[in-house]
Design a protein around this nucleic acid. Sequence first.
DNA 1: CGCCGAATTGACACGGTTCAATTGAGGTGG
DNA 2: CCACCTCAATTGAACCGTGTCAATTCGGCG
Lengths: 244, 244
Amino acid sequence: MTTNLVRPIRPQVMDPVLRRFATLATLAPNEIALVERLAGQREECRAGAELLAEGATVRPPRLIVSGWAVRQRLLPDGRRQIFSFLVPGDGVGFCLRPHPLALAATIALTRVETVDASSIRLAAKDPEAHPGLTRILETAGHIDEARLLDNVVRLGRQTAYERVAHLLLELRDRLVAAGLADERRFPLPATQEVLADALGLSVVHINRILQQLRREKLIELHSGRVVLLNPDLLTAISDYRAAK
Amino acid sequence: MTTNLVRPIRPQVMDPVLRRFATLATLAPNEIALVERLAGQREECRAGAELLAEGATVRPPRLIVSGWAVRQRLLPDGRRQIFSFLVPGDGVGFCLRPHPLALAATIALTRVETVDASSIRLAAKDPEAHPGLTRILETAGHIDEARLLDNVVRLGRQTAYERVAHLLLELRDRLVAAGLADERRFPLPATQEVLADALGLSVVHINRILQQLRREKLIELHSGRVVLLNPDLLTAISDYRAAK
DNA sequence: CGCCGAATTGACACGGTTCAATTGAGGTGG
DNA sequence: CCACCTCAATTGAACCGTGTCAATTCGGCG
């Protein structure tokens, strides 16, 4: 009688993951089913929790299905550098190499829900049976690497103004891929301190740059939501190129 | 009559590679032979040449056997960011992922000799037969990634003074691995402009920091050779940790 | 209503950049 | 062997982007 019967009722928890995956490769029905089955045992952790400690042996790979996290490293004197943001559809401890110790800590920025993704990594060991998942892991790794290089350029050769614009565009694109943003607006559950530590700036300066971007009618930002008022100009300002 | 007969006369071209590899895993005799055989067809390019263009489809993987190169990206306005230095024993286009487009250009800093390393990558596809080479590729990738994160921390959260100290220590360790440096002295065939572009600083400032390090009797640096006069202090200053 | 962390603001200090010369060193040709 | 050329290194001075310190205000929540 209803489409609910055709497509069994279930929480759409895997939607961001599936959307993100769909941008990386086409999945066969059996692969989609495999991903949907991950929803079974979700695990949850609160804001501030450490999903993975730096130097720890990497545990079974997980996928974020809701919430935000960061990968970061702390210097002995308390300075912090954030390497990347993790949003739904991103992996935690997903390294393809065998033995690896975690090169950075992973910290939840909000409440985060993850699912065990061991079966995906396992499936990708058999590219014939799971071409889509195989390709997704490869491409996702490639994109992660590209974004890390983007980050190096940002930190090394861009001004504070350019850095902020560039990061906002990156986050937008990533959230769009997960179906969590449109072209102009998206949630940003990060304090200015977090942004500062990601962009190699002080909190005070981040604050001033955001003011400037608001004054110039390039963005709006209240209560954890961003609106990009002029994405094209931001793109030009920051020399942004979509990854991949 | 001489040990030359036991170990056939051949140019020691693969020595840096073999030494570097030996720090990553123990190689079986057949694996060593496989590496030595690479010496067959060397290829050479002059300083300034582009070993690999950004965005180009990656060509067969190569290993540097002599000379230095950098991985870099250029911004449209001419700013440059160098991601990493490549020294003997390092790979060019060695990505484990299949399709990958080069994420950065690779440029020779000096005259560079490379050898085709396709057979190594091929060998690593059969971990049973070539456990050492397999492990080496994995570990080398892991270390590259760790060094890239180090670089992010340097750029984002260290002062110019710390950055220079940190980079010098990294280069020392890498050259030591290849048998091209001792604990205190090594060649540095890079102009101050190159150092500046690697560390996100201006040439003028790099110059001043080097002066300062010399004044403080921490380093010597003439005609492309560095002497670390107080490696321990440099290590403390820059919070340096050897990779891996 | 009151609390607390986050955001905001001003004043000031400083690290790092820019511009513009000048010096130095290696390489070439006469 | 010297004159010359060029590129890298060096230096000084002024400027400015960003950091630091210290309040103050705002906003969400119990």
